[in-house]
């Protein structure tokens, strides 16, 4: 009887210690994305101190297991995104640290995640008209690397607070995947614009209007 109780308790802990969801992750998860997910989880749990400590670990470029490889830190990514999309994330990130403002840090990390996802999708879009059938597998990998940002950084909050929207966005991403498989550039582009617009609204982010009103 005691062993049954222990097994049941263990099962409960395993199943519900992380009230996450059975969603699809494919391909590589970069160390910085992994940390971004942890930081958002800590902010959600109200552990401000630990969230900033975690963020500090990946603020500058860092080594992760492999000492011969340097991983981009949050600061480098923010500077790159500012250059690419005309945002002001570098300053926003530094402000969040100097003011110890977890809300600002959350918003900055979400915006960074969204822009990293857009970067991947734009790369796929740029090649969509020209790649051969044998290259499809590689482009799907790029697509999944982009989609993983949504799955890890946005989907947990949507699953918890707005499940109907979660389903809508999941289906938009499925639509993008099928457009990629069918090489329908226009459909891929339209779905990407709608996805970014919806995430921007759902999470109260302030993406530059040039990105939202982008012409193909």
């Amino acid at each position: 009887m005691r062993s049954i109780c222990i097994i049941l308790c263990l099962l409960f802990v395993i199943c519900f210690s992380n009230p996450s969801f059975p969603h699809r992750i494919e391909g590589e998860i970069t160390p910085v994305l992994e940390r971004m997910e942890v930081i958002l989880g800590l902010i959600e749990a109200g552990d401000k101190e630990l969230a900033f400590r975690e963020a500090q670990e990946v603020f500058e470029d860092f080594h992760y297991h492999d000492f011969s490889r340097v991983e981009e830190g949050l600061k480098t990514i923010a500077v790159r995104m500012d250059r690419e999309f005309g945002t002001n994330l570098g300053k926003q990130l530094e402000d969040s640290f100097s003011k110890k403002d977890p809300e600002l840090l959350r918003k900055t990390i979400k915006t960074l995640g969204l822009l990293l996802m857009v970067e991947r999708f734009k790369f796929v879009e740029s090649k969509l008209g020209s790649f051969s059938k044998s290259e499809l597998k590689d482009f799907k990998k790029h697509f999944w690397r982009g989609r993983n940002y949504f799955t890890l950084l946005f989907e947990p909050a949507l699953a918890k607070y707005n499940p109907a929207e979660e389903v809508r966005l999941e289906r938009l991403l499925d639509k993008m995947l099928y457009s990629l498989e069918d090489r329908k550039l226009k459909d891929f582009y339209r779905a990407r614009i709608e996805l970014v617009d919806r995430i921007n609204r759902d999470f109260g982010l302030s993406l530059p209007t040039t990105l939202l009103n982008e012409k193909q």
Binding site: C15, F16, P19, S20, F21, P22, A159, K160, P163
Partner: peptide
Amino acid sequence: FRAVPDRF
């Protein structure tokens, strides 16, 4: 009833 969203 989504007792634990997407899990239970």
